[in-house]
Design a binder for these strands. Structure first.
Lengths: 152, 152
DNA sequence: ACTAACTCTATCATGTTGATAGACTTTTAA
DNA sequence: TTAAAAGTCTATCAACATGATAGAGTTAGT
């Protein structure tokens, strides 16, 4: 039950790219520096996201990466699945890498794991990067207001 | 986001022990055979569960393992935490192995992971092994009725 | 005392994770 | 037209986790 560093980095990079959606291509180097992600590691991550069609890239001087579509059309689930694979805790309840278990029909562990899978998917597949940016703005504002209150 | 084989085996063994709760100590060998779990591997698992107080053991001839308390007082969460550790997808939202992340207050990834942790915990900490036995009985009955229907 | 059972520690092969290296290709702008 | 800046691709690595096995102990019922 663990989010890999890879997916964590990917989410951070995606939030960064979402916040800069209108500004055109952003370079790996910039994301790497701002989000403190090892550059070479980030290269692989972004490459993967490009291959699944979440990002577009421009090669050459002044190249970079940008979202392939609007942030409200990309969910956390899409990104995590691209990097970590299936979200389900066991394969027999996975949409992505389904493998039947021996006693499918009566297996009670399976039924509980299905509940968990659905609960996770419910969060990750509904949450878009537009939502994430909004949340970030909200919580920043809130913490600034708080800081202001304290300094009075 | 993956349940380890260890936890999976543990859950199966616990369900088996719950179903045999009134019958006194059950031997590793029996559980291993019935649930098709490598015996030596199972030894380690049961030992761990004993150390955290979920199981009691009797040594010597006619020894074995049994639940330390009634099945309705043991949750799946307790067992999985004993074997796999924290349930939370990232440490900064974990009750069990909490480690602060740098930007705790404003981190939006954290807030989403907290939602997921809570959703998972909500399932695992409410579901007891008594519930599991009931489910098993229900689904067995259902599949038998179904089989009957088919054979008419 | 014999034996069936749990206890404990060590070991092992395999795979995954997080990270790095370097050679290659594409594009732009001077 | 060429140098520099950017992405592309493949290989490699150390460290760790996982799933499993081995074997020498210890305990207790008969």
């Amino acid at each position: 039950m663990k989010l890999s560093k890879k997916s964590d980095y990917a989410l951070r990079a995606m939030i960064y790219l979402s916040a800069n959606y209108q500004k055109g291509a952003v370079q790996i180097k910039e994301i790497s520096a701002k989000e403190k992600i090892p550059q070479k590691f980030l290269e692989n991550i972004l490459l993967t996201l490009r291959k699944v069609g979440i990002l577009n890239s421009k090669m050459g001087l002044r190249g970079g990466y940008e979202l392939a579509r609007s942030p409200d059309l990309i969910t956390l689930g899409q990104v995590i699945r691209a990097l970590d694979g299936a979200i389900a805790p066991v394969d027999c309840v996975s949409q992505m890498s389904y493998k039947p278990c021996s006693e499918e029909v009566t297996c009670v562990i399976r039924s509980v794991m299905m509940e968990i899978r659905n609960a996770i998917a419910d969060v990750l597949d509904k949450m878009t990067f537009a939502d994430m940016c909004k949340r970030a703005a909200d919580s920043l504002e809130k913490s600034e207001r708080k800081a202001l209150t304290y300094t009075i």
